[in-house]
């Protein structure tokens, strides 16, 4: 990999200042960034580690909101987010134990891999992405595969999740990468049900609004039995065709509702 300068600031302000340099990039857990750099697909002049900033790490619960620091590793979310069990369960199944000790929620959301788990949780929960300069609603944050509302040099400092009445995440795992071949997160709130799908669409994570409407009226797996998912925008690759993924969306949504 190309060489770069490594810095590890201890405050958000210092990190933002360091990121002003051209081609500087934030480094969180590095579980995607480092492999990408090894392949020379990415060539930062400077990496600004966010893991030395204490305020970015940890899980807190207040009232009906769970807040997770941007640089909190998946393993810590799995262990400490007991106030939102479906979220803790999702975190406990990302990658493998070593990846979960390094990879962070902010890194996952900033990367917005089309098959990552956290984007489904954030979108289905109507979470708020908190950055060093503003708060962004999940509905405005995800803007397509590997694309988000974040500006250059803007970092995720935390994510606020409203805790639902019931929720479940069903991940149909690609067994080699442990990413979601398709994953569906269903969250039931007093004002309606939200359904977010990852791993399936060429546009990245999306809400399956027809299912949300059906489930908001009748929260049972039967409520979606008459629906079909359009395969035309779905990912097709050697692991599964677009039609296969479209079918998985429906099957996994039913399973998630049944498990709620």
């Amino acid at each position: 990999m190309y060489n770069f300068e490594f810095v590890k600031p201890s405050s958000v302000e210092e990190a933002i200042a360091a990121l002003k340099e051209e081609d500087a990039q934030p480094l969180s857990g590095g579980q995607t960034l480092i492999p990408t750099m090894k392949q020379r697909l990415n060539q930062p002049s400077k990496l600004v580690s966010l893991l030395g900033i204490a305020e970015l790490n940890g899980v807190s619960a207040e009232g009906s909101t769970v807040t997770i620091g941007g640089a909190t590793p998946h393993a810590v979310v799995a262990a400490d987010a007991s106030a939102y069990p479906a979220l803790a369960a999702l975190a406990s199944n990302i990658g493998d134990p070593a990846v979960r000790n390094r990879g962070t929620i902010g890194g996952s959301l900033a990367n917005n891999d089309p098959a990552a788990c956290y984007p489904a949780a954030a979108l289905a929960s109507g979470a708020t992405i908190v950055t060093n300069s503003r708060e962004i609603a999940a509905d405005d944050y995800f803007q397509g595969m590997f694309t988000t509302a974040l500006d250059e040099g803007e970092i995720i400092t935390g994510v606020k999740f409203p805790v639902p009445e019931a929720a479940n995440y069903q991940k149909f795992e690609q067994p080699a990468s442990r990413f979601a071949l398709t994953g569906v997160f269903v969250a039931k709130y007093a004002d309606g049900v939200r359904v977010a799908v990852t791993g399936a669409s060429n546009d990245g994570v999306f809400r399956w609004t027809e299912a949300e409407e059906a489930l908001s009226g009748n929260f049972s797996a039967d409520a979606i039995s008459g629906l079909t998912v359009d395969a035309s925008d779905m990912i097709s690759d050697l692991h599964g065709t677009a039609e296969y993924r479209a079918n998985l969306v429906k099957v996994l949504t039913g399973r998630a509702v049944a498990a709620c």
Binding site: F6, K8, G30, Q31, I34, P35, K38, L47, S49, L51, A75, D96, P97, A98, V99, N101, R102, A176
Partner: peptide, 27 residues
């Protein structure tokens, strides 16, 4: 593998299992 898949490089850093090929020495 050097691609963070195989785990042969697993070590513990501050008591946590990590893949040492997917972490910088400086970290």
């Amino acid at each position: 593998c050097d691609t963070s898949q195989c785990g042969a490089c697993t070590v513990h850093v501050n008591g946590k299992q990590v893949k040492s090929c997917t972490m910088f020495a400086a970290e």
